[in-house]
């Protein structure tokens, strides 16, 4: 086996895991704190991507600058969606919640199709998009490297907030015991709103990066919803700390298959979900 190819596969996998972690951690936050299974999560990601694209086209905003606009925009979008719909179904059966978020996703996706059309869009002509480095035969693109570093930085920031700040502790308190949380003076509904909005903002930040890395269409979101779900399930529902490891595992597997197996690129998604199947089956056996 070609060692360089193997190293390339590992490196690409590691770099891809950052973005997966960023998108998944937002979903895990919504599931863990609010208990809402949000099928529109990937659509927040997509909206982030196309907002960044539009900011670039209309005002020439560099994607790095767009991060600072997209995050608050998606935070507000998340808050609005929570206030106008999610908060009313918190006690509804889970199937109803899923249908609602699924519907929200479809609306967002179709709105994007109306606004931007179905063609792939990309922030292609930023000067650094083609920059790459060669290290011992292995190539590292600046964009994947930067998106990895930014993603990990944001995820680390979220971990810090959750573990070390009063707001983070409030979110953990609400996640662990709603009744107890309200008895120590927390307005549970307000914490839910913040968690949902934050979750949307995290997805939006991931979207900005995909607009530079790939050429997304408005239907890019659903694949990411599924992938994020897979990672969240792998980490254990609601387990935010497990997200980094789970993202690394699936991203590595995906990348290694794509680089080492002939025609492996078309197997990417298959590998992703094969891992999830195996984990779910093994886990249910262990519990049985």
């Amino acid at each position: 086996m070609d060692l360089t190819l193997l190293l390339q596969g590992i490196l690409s996998g590691i770099l891809a895991s950052g973005l997966y972690a960023l998108v998944s951690v937002g979903l895990a936050l919504a599931i863990g704190v609010i208990g809402i299974v949000n099928f529109a999560h990937g659509e927040f990601f997509m909206v982030g991507a196309f907002l960044a694209y539009q900011l670039f086209i209309s005002f020439g905003f560099d994607p790095v600058l767009s991060l600072f606009f997209v995050a608050p925009a998606l935070f507000i979008l998340g808050a609005l969606i929570y206030r106008s719909s999610i908060q009313f179904v918190l006690k509804a059966p889970e199937l109803n919640q899923m249908l609602l978020t699924f519907g929200i996703g479809i609306i967002l996706q179709n709105l994007a199709l109306v606004i931007w059309g179905g063609d792939p869009r990309s922030i292609s002509n930023v000067p650094y998009r083609s920059i790459g480095y060669q290290v011992g035969g292995v190539s590292i693109g600046l964009v994947p490297l930067a998106s990895f570093l930014i993603s990990i930085f944001i995820v680390a920031g979220l971990y810090f907030v959750l573990l070390k700040t009063p707001l983070g502790r409030a979110m953990r308190a609400v996640a662990q015991n709603r009744t107890g949380a309200s008895l120590v003076g927390l307005e549970v509904n307000r914490i839910y709103l913040l968690a949902f909005a934050l979750s949307a903002a995290l997805a939006g930040l991931g979207g900005v990066m995909i607009a530079v890395i790939q050429s997304p269409t408005p239907v890019v979101g659903f694949a990411f919803t599924l992938k994020a779900f897979a990672i969240v399930v792998l980490a254990g529902l609601g387990n935010i700390r497990g997200i980094l490891g789970a993202s690394l595992l699936v991203a590595l597997a995906e990348s290694l298959v794509a680089t080492l197996v002939p025609d492996g690129d078309s197997l990417r998604n298959a590998v992703f979900f094969a891992i999830i199947f195996v984990v779910l089956i093994v886990r249910s056996r262990r519990q049985a």
Partner: peptide, 22 residues
């Protein structure tokens, strides 16, 4: 409350502090 309603994944100290934090 009935059932104590503690924060099970927090330490004893964190549970106590959360009583005053907000």
């Amino acid at each position: 409350p009935e059932g104590r309603q503690l924060f099970h994944l927090m330490t004893v100290l964190e549970n106590l502090e959360s009583g005053a934090d907000y």
